[in-house]
């Protein structure tokens, strides 16, 4: 960001909004916005409660499980779709429908099938993340340099070598972009899943804090979730920038 030709670091912008929030909070315009200093104080006590730690455990566990499944299935299906015409024809339309569909609407159905528990949250994370990973992997693999594929062929690469040593690496910029978007969607999935179930994990906490009008505690939870999503997506973006150079070299 630049103001009057001077470069302003990101932290200054963050600080500005925090100060604004603090002022609005002290003006007491709305009880929904307590001053940020009070939120920080509340956060200190919230973070040490057993309920919070347990909620975080559930969230991280279900998120990790759902994301891992989405990664494995997404990259595998995306590759198959790029390489085999019949798979592309069977799945292509569905992936495109689901990638834009509001998956939240399916959570009640998942609850019906998988019960009101962690399995439903895992499934929600999976469904939120998997389709964009499939789609980006497919694009990456089908755009993989044709002459690299021919080179591998001429040097006698097996199907497995072609996949691991040429195709996946060649498609890495697209696959990483897909993973980053998948992770962002996955975080939404883990929150929305628990909110809709509302008796486990951070869903339960959100429900509890808003019902009892504990706005300071509520906001501290929001900040934790936002920070988590942001840090995760930025760290993947870091890897993306590292492989950027070869997107231009294909």
């Amino acid at each position: 960001m630049e103001i009057f030709g001077k470069k302003i670091p990101f932290s200054v912008s963050l600080l500005f909004w925090c100060v604004l929030w603090e002022l609005v909070g002290w003006m007491g315009l709305s009880s929904i916005f307590p001053p940020i200093s009070k939120i920080v104080v509340a956060a200190m006590t919230v973070f040490t409660t057993e309920k919070f730690i347990k909620a975080m455990e559930i969230s991280l566990r279900t998120f990790a499980l759902g994301m891992s499944l989405a990664l494995v299935v997404g990259i595998a299906l995306g590759t198959l779709m790029a390489r085999i015409k019949i798979v592309r024809e069977i799945l292509g339309m569905w992936v495109n429908i689901f990638v834009s569909a509001p998956i939240s609407a399916l959570v009640p159905i998942l609850m019906g099938i998988l019960g009101i528990g962690e399995a439903t949250v895992v499934a929600t994370v999976f469904l939120f993340a998997v389709f964009i990973i499939i789609l980006d992997t497919q694009v990456g693999i089908s755009m993989a340099d044709r002459s690299l594929v021919e080179m591998g062929k001429s040097l006698g690469a097996s199907r497995y070598q072609m996949f691991t040593k040429i195709l996946v690496l060649s498609a890495l910029p697209e696959i990483l972009a897909g993973i980053r978007l998948g992770v962002i969607r996955g975080v939404k999935g883990v929150v929305i899943g628990q909110l809709l179930i509302s008796i486990i994990g951070i869903g339960e906490l959100f429900e509890f804090y808003s019902m009892h009008f504990l706005m300071e505690e509520f906001w501290s939870l929001v900040i934790v979730v936002f920070t988590f999503a942001f840090v995760l997506s930025e760290s993947i973006a870091f890897f993306e920038r590292r492989v950027e150079y070869y997107a231009g070299n294909r």
């Binding site: 002459s147 690299l148 021919e150 080179m151 062929k153 001429s154 040097l155 070299n249 294909r250």
Partner: peptide
């Protein structure tokens, strides 16, 4: 393709 023939590509085909 076979090990009796090696190919040199127009666009080099190097792994970036």
């Amino acid at each position: 393709p076979g090990p009796d023939r090696a190919f040199v590509f127009q666009d080099f085909a190097l792994l970036p």
